[in-house]
């Protein structure tokens, strides 16, 4: 038998095949990045928490009721004012007697009903966290001339955080208005 040269394979349809695969992956792709508010929950203990003597001037109580209304230290408040007021409470720039003695003594106490909507809860939690983040930013700029996220070492971050430690204590919710 005579040797025949291997016929060349037509690669023209290669593009079509690749296109088909491409479209398949395009359709199935969900580039969803996982983002959210990261929280560290307190460990569970069966014993009731020890009685703590807290100076009431250091406690910033935030209540969200089943109608998603906000009560801060006994006064109703709009959610959009929460961030500024929290910052003022923690930093206490004028040294008022009814606000935190020192920023590292401030405690945020957050309480909600079982009927509170998750949306409202996240909104309030976000504002409280944002208040701290903004305080950290100003502190970091004062000390290191950079925003908190831009700080280079963990020690620097820790120093800023120790000046304004984030303490959000969450109470057991009251069982109002659960659907």
């Amino acid at each position: 038998m005579a040797r025949r040269e291997a016929p060349e394979i037509n690669a023209g349809s290669m593009a079509d095949i690749a296109f088909l695969l491409l479209i398949f992956f395009l359709v199935t792709t969900t580039i969803d990045v996982d983002k959210g508010i990261t929280v560290k929950l307190p460990p569970w203990s069966d014993e009731p928490p020890p009685e703590m003597k807290l100076n009431s001037r250091n406690v910033y109580s935030v209540l969200v009721n089943a109608n998603d209304q906000l009560l801060v230290r006994g006064e109703p408040m709009e959610p959009r004012n929460l961030r500024e007021n929290t910052k003022i409470f923690i930093a206490n720039p004028k040294g008022l007697a009814n606000m935190a003695e020192k920023p590292n003594k401030a405690i945020i106490s957050l309480k909600n009903d079982r009927g509170t909507s998750y949306k409202a809860y996240i909104q309030v939690y976000n504002e409280l966290k944002a208040a701290y983040r903004e305080l950290w930013d100003t502190e970091a700029e004062k000390l290191f001339g950079e925003k908190y996220e831009g700080l280079k070492t963990i020690d620097q971050k820790r120093e800023v955080r120790n000046a304004f430690p984030l303490v959000i204590s969450e109470a057991e919710p009251t069982s109002f208005g659960e659907k």
Binding site: D34, G115, P173, G177
Partner: peptide
Amino acid sequence: VTMGIVTDVKTKLRKINQLKVNYSS
């Protein structure tokens, strides 16, 4: 969703010592 069910989940997570939580938003 109301916070009732979320609280129950959170309590369960605390009981089994899964303390790192992220609220997707």
